[in-house]
Structure formats: structure tokens, C-alpha cells
Design a binder for these strands. Structure first.
Lengths: 253, 253
DNA sequence: GCCTCGCCATGATCTGGATCAAAGAATAAA
DNA sequence: TTTATTCTTTGATCCAGATCATGGCGAGGC
């Protein structure tokens, strides 16, 4: 069981803002707990209103494909709750997960009008959907938002480089430790506590993210558990014994 | 010997534009052969002039460190000729090259005011230097440029994801074939011929880019040579026998 | 010329993590 | 409750690529 705080959202699977916002009710955005983390952080009240006009909110169950690699990219997404994975496949089925997206993360950017990867929900998820065309128009109108989006892309680029270092040069144990630290840091940025880390994804997903097999991921977890570096708790939580020790394990120092 | 077309540049190591642009002479930017590939492509004559005001051109010999990981990020760079490698290190010296930068490529973006990687020249290189502060001011003034930079970052992000797939899931042979195809495609985008591919970097650099050792890179090259997939020519050039065959080898199909 | 020095190739051996196989544990269905 | 079904752990074996070691080759330096 994964526990998730739904920032907002109703039972309907898709709803336009107009429909979901009866007269007098406060707009969902103003209650959005991840707004400060994402592109919306840069916006004034009026700009936020304009953005809200083009946005839809959606919810998906776990294991749902949001879009597939190669499909025309007509929508941008923002995660408001839950976890999404994005991955690329080789013809024979080998898979590389290039990222896990948490509340506040943005996805759906495209290169030549089609998605370069598949996006699939790991847990139940709520998303904001922005039609690409209208979003682009808004970006032209609000340079602050353009700038914010650029800065988010820069951060992602830096994270991608860290991941390349991990994939190309780290051992299995270093990979797992780095992964746990990453989850911890990301939780921290979202105002959750850093230590018992919530790990909502399966061993297979972790393996495909770290360039390993499920067996190796499993073995490495038990090895870390045996050496008292971590302990596994109820509800997919991992307790890190000593943050600094784990950091050393993550860098092979 | 690496053959390089110097788009512009003089003997002086560093020169401000003012000094290098005597009255009546055409500004270097207008002669720049890579302008259409980079951030400058988006600009009008007047905007280009403003950009040129803040730019310096520099040249470095092969093997020179442009900046080191962790240094304060005060300058953005644009490659105008030659090849630059950017890499990250682990404490024990393991290295991951996260990219080779060719003419038209931009680098030096930072996350929290310091560079997240080291940049080092592979061949003799000429660069445009933009002071970060002044560049940011200009970006605020010219949203088109901001947008262009964002789109370049998006492309890099997509390339980074391809590289993650390569590092995490491809075999040595697939990695080498992918690498050769990448070089070929990038040459093509720059208007050079796609087939005898110029490979200016050492076996060690290729290894650190692909997450392999020099020995494996070397062995894989000879293996591809033996199986008639490629042949090695004079001057660090690689002749690809059949593009489509190589593409299949690169994806394990 | 000859010597160094840094690359590159190739051979021999080793090993971390993959693969193959099977038995628990958890979750969901009946 | 029992029974599928899927996920995780653990064991045994294998192998792609790392590591260790050596020799060749080309470019500078003297």
C-alpha cells in the first residue's frame, strides 16, 4: 500500500477547470501544495489565473501509461501527487528508466513534436495537463515562466549528468546507495522528512533505473541490511542508519 | 593531426570584440559558420550586435582545462571550432565523460552558481565567452533568445536520456556503434559529410564516455573492423560500410 | 639517428553482475 | 479459506567486460 497526499482532485478522471470550479470556490492552484516547486512558482495571481484557464487535472491508477514513446506530443504534464516513471526501450525489450517524477516535476517536453519516451504511473497519480500549443503561447506572453521552465530544465540536465556518472562508473552497491540518497534529498525538498525514505517503486523498476537486474538489486539491499547500513521498514520504507556513511558508500570513498 | 576550420579568431588568446573589430570591419558573428546552430540563430541584427558587445573570443590548445567542477560559474561558452569534453569524477578517480561538445554547442550552465563538471579541450578549440550576469540580463531583454536556449536545453535533455539508455542497457558493441552513428549525425547537422566520420578523441576518452575501458574499446573496434562493419582510415577517420547495418548493431536488433 | 613517452593493440586471467532456477511472501481473486 | 498471480529473495553457474601484463608504433625531443 502506498500512502499519498492528494493535493487536490475529485473523483472524475478528467475535468476542465471551469467545470470543477463552482462560483466562489477557491481555484485548485491556490491550494496546490507543490506550486512552489514547479513552473507555477514564478507566477503572479493574474498569470496563475491565465494558466489555470488552460489546465485540466487528471487522475490515473497505478500502472497506467500516460503516453508512449513516439506519440505526438500534444500535452505537457505536471505531477501533483504520486510517482511517475519515464523510460525508453530497445527493440528487444531492454528498458532504461530515465527518471522517476515526483509531485512538482514537469514532463512531456518533446524534441520534434513527439515524445522521446514512455511515461507510466508507478502509484495512483494526479496530474495537471497543459495543451502544448496554448502553453507555448503563454510562455511567449510570460517570460518569467519561460525562464522558470529553463531553470528547471537546467536542473534536470545536471541530474541527468549525475545519473550518467552513476550508470557508467558506479558499482551495484554505490548505485543503490546513491539511489536511496537521491530519494531522501528529493523528499527533503518537498518538505517531507529525509530519513525513513519512502520507496514506492518495485525492485524491477529500481533495476531498470540503475542499469542492474532485479536479482542484483535485491541482493544488494540484503547486503546493506546485513552490514547495518540500512533497515527495511513497513510500507516500502527504508531507514538509513547513518547519512554520511551512506554518502561515502555512494561515492566509493 | 586534426583538421579544423577556424570560423574566426586571431592569434591573441583572448580578445574583446571592441579590440578585434576595427572600424568598417565586419563583425565576427556575421561570419560565424555555426551561428545557425546555436543560441545566436534566433537573433535580429540589432540583438546580435548587443550580444557581440558582451562576448569575447578565446582559443586554447588541446588538453587545456577550460574550467573545473565546483568552480564558480561566471562564464558561459559557445564552441566555434574544435572539440571539448565535459566530465565528472568520483573521489577515487573514476571518470565519466558526459558529453563531447562540437562547434555550435553551448556549455557552462550552472545549478547553484558553480560548474557541475569539468570542461577540457580535446583538440585546439575556439570559444565565445559570455559573462553570465550580462548574459542573463540579455536573456531577460530578448525572450526569443531565452526560448532558443530553452529549446537547446530540451534537446540536450533528450540526448542525455539516449545516453542513459546506452550506458545502462547496451553492450560494448552496441555502445561503439551508437557512438559512431552519433558522431556521424552530428557531423551531418553541421553540414559535413556523414560517412568517413572524424573521431578526434582518444580511446581512453571514448571509454570514459561509453562506460567502458580502453582495452574494450580497442578490441571492439578491431572486431567491427574484422567483421567488415567499419574500416579505419588515415587521420582518425572511420569509414562506415553500411549505415543501416550499423544502426541495427547499435540497437541490438 | 636514437631514445623517450604516450597511445593503441592484443593476450591471459579474473570477477562483478547477469543468467538460470526455484522457493518464500505478499496481494488479489474466488 | 483456498488458490492464483505477482513480487521478492536466495542459490548455482556463467560470461562480458575488467584487470593485469606485454609488445608495437608513431610523434617529439635531443
Amino acid at each position: 500500500m502506498t500512502h499519498i497526499d492528494f493535493a487536490y482532485g475529485r473523483d472524475a478522471t478528467v475535468q476542465t477547470n471551469a467545470k470543477s470550479d463552482p462560483a466562489g470556490e477557491i481555484h485548485p492552484c491556490s491550494a496546490c501544495t507543490v506550486r512552489t516547486l514547479t513552473v507555477c512558482a514564478a507566477l503572479e495571481a493574474e498569470e496563475l489565473r491565465r494558466l489555470a484557464e488552460i489546465l485540466q487535472t487528471t487522475r490515473f491508477d497505478a500502472g497506467h501509461t500516460v503516453f508512449g514513446e513516439g506519440e505526438p506530443a500534444e500535452t505537457l504534464y505536471n505531477v501533483t501527487s504520486g510517482t511517475v516513471k519515464v523510460y525508453k526501450l530497445l527493440p528487444d525489450g531492454r528498458r532504461q528508466i530515465t527518471g522517476f517524477l515526483l509531485p512538482g516535476d514537469f514532463f512531456g517536453l518533446s524534441v520534434n513534436d513527439s515524445y522521446a519516451y514512455t511515461a507510466e504511473t508507478v502509484t495512483p497519480v494526479s496530474l495537471c495537463r497543459f495543451p502544448r500549443r496554448r502553453m507555448e503561447a503563454l510562455l511567449d506572453e510570460f517570460p518569467k515562466m519561460q525562464r522558470r521552465l529553463f531553470s528547471m530544465a537546467s536542473n534536470e540536465l545536471a541530474a541527468a549528468q549525475d545519473q550518467m556518472l552513476l550508470l557508467g562508473r558506479k558499482t551495484a552497491k554505490e548505485k543503490i546507495c546513491s539511489f536511496l540518497l537521491l530519494l531522501s534529498q528529493r523528499a527533503s525538498r518537498r518538505g517531507h522528512k529525509t530519513n525513513p525514505v519512502h520507496v514506492p517503486m518495485s525492485r524491477a523498476d529500481i533495476a531498470d533505473y540503475l542499469g542492474l537486474t532485479t536479482e542484483t538489486v535485491s541482493r544488494t539491499f540484503t547486503q546493506l541490511k546485513t552490514s547495518r547500513a540500512i533497515s527495511l521498514l513497513e510500507g516500502n520504507k527504508v531507514q538509513i542508519q547513518d547519512m554520511d556513511d551512506l554518502l561515502e558508500l555512494a561515492e566509493g570513498a
